Simulated scan of single mutants.
Amino acid sequence: MLLPRALEAADVDAWVILCRENNNDPLADHVGCENAGAPAAYVFYRLSDEKGGSEFHSLVFSPSSEATALAELEIHDKVVSVPRGESALKQAAEFIQEHDFQRIAVNSSVNNAQADGLSYTQRLALKDALGDKFAQRLVSSEELVYEWLAIKLPQEVDIIREAARLTAEWQIEAYKQVVPGKTTDADVARFLKAKMEEHGVTDAWAPDQNPNVNSGPDRGHSHATDKVIMPGDVIQTDFGIKVHGRWVSDIQRFAYVLKPGETKPPEDIQHYWESARAGGRAAFEAMKPGVRGIDVDAAQSVLMKQNGSEHVMWSTGHPVGYVAHDTGPNLGGSRGATVRPAAKKTLKAGMVFAFDGFHAWKRDDGTTKTISVEEMAVITEDGAEYLIPPQEELILIPSE
């Protein structure tokens, strides 16, 4: 449903993906060539129809060793079995020449790693097979991949929503296990790892840094340490899971450890929390079709300044879906020295984001602590919708 629109939006006649064993293209399992042994060529293309429009087709030139199983899956219009000793790349090049495609996308991109799977040697081989005339028609697939992966189908959003629900639910459950003065950040992380194993889900990003549990000063993207959780600590848990081997979540939940005699957070901590929560709400209200990512970031930045937050280097948010930092508009740029090209992209209905509400402050020891409560939302036709209810208050952990 999405790829034909992406080819049209990117003004591309054909898209060629070269697949191989052991060092495959990042998009291999999105198009069905994750099991490639010998080199294979996948061609997605548009042909003009009698009504002045175009018809979408997919054609695979597959080594005979994989062709039978691939054809049985029926995910491509046609699978051509390439006998041993013959070149799938050469046959694909001949097909491209025969149809005289004008703009031929390949996976080479400066800005999007998911659209940068074509190696230098593969590109040389492709140019040699196409010849000078057609090699000059090669363009980056960056815009095509952007248009294709950034939009999620409603069924996908439902799956991601369930992943988000589990992610937040397990974090709250993990906080209930904390015994101040005894439990470490790493203990909380191990509890969440056990929940993942119990339910048969995997990590949304690098396993060593998922979850990132931190009851001390900011550490950025990092692993949980053996720091003991103490009264007065603000605990951050940044956690994501991958379900069905494909879709991921990215949620942060924050807790405060009450000191003996406290029944609520002290005034300063409560202010930091309310400031972060307000920043996140401002970003959410700004999220709608046609708005640039940098403008969503700017909506929060105004409140951060008003509420006395220290500088925060991180973007307000990022696309999420197939990976934690997915293809799509970056919700950042208003506080940094440079602006990513993706921050100037506009939001569209069907895009899914993880986004933070920020407030940073200086601790007594001079280090910085940031509340970055992270929620997930999908863009709708007229605004945005939370995937799960957002965190309204700090989770309070009593001290014995």
Rank of each mutant, 00 (worst) to 15 (best):
L2Y: 08
A14L: 06
G32K: 00
G37T: 11
A40S: 10
A41N: 01
F44R: 03
S54V: 00
F56L: 01
H57E: 00
T68P: 00
A71I: 11
A92G: 15
A93C: 09
Q102T: 14
I104Y: 04
V110H: 11
N111W: 12
A113S: 14
Q114H: 12
D116H: 13
R123P: 01
A129F: 11
D132C: 02
A135L: 05
A135D: 09
S141H: 05
S141D: 07
E143W: 13
I151A: 01
V157A: 08
V157F: 08
D158M: 14
A163S: 09
A168I: 05
E169H: 12
E173W: 06
Q177I: 08
A186I: 12
F191T: 02
A194D: 13
E198W: 14
V201L: 05
Q209R: 13
G216P: 06
S222V: 09
M230R: 11
M230W: 00
D233N: 15
V243L: 04
V248Y: 02
D250R: 12
V257A: 13
E267N: 14
I269V: 15
S275N: 06
E285W: 06
E285I: 07
G290L: 13
R292T: 14
G293M: 04
E310N: 11
V320H: 00
A324H: 02
T327Y: 04
T327V: 15
P329T: 05
P329M: 02
L331I: 14
G336F: 06
T338P: 01
R340F: 05
P341E: 12
A342E: 08
F353T: 02
A354D: 02
F358L: 12
W361Y: 12
R363G: 11
I371Q: 02
V378N: 00
V378R: 00
D382K: 07
P389E: 12
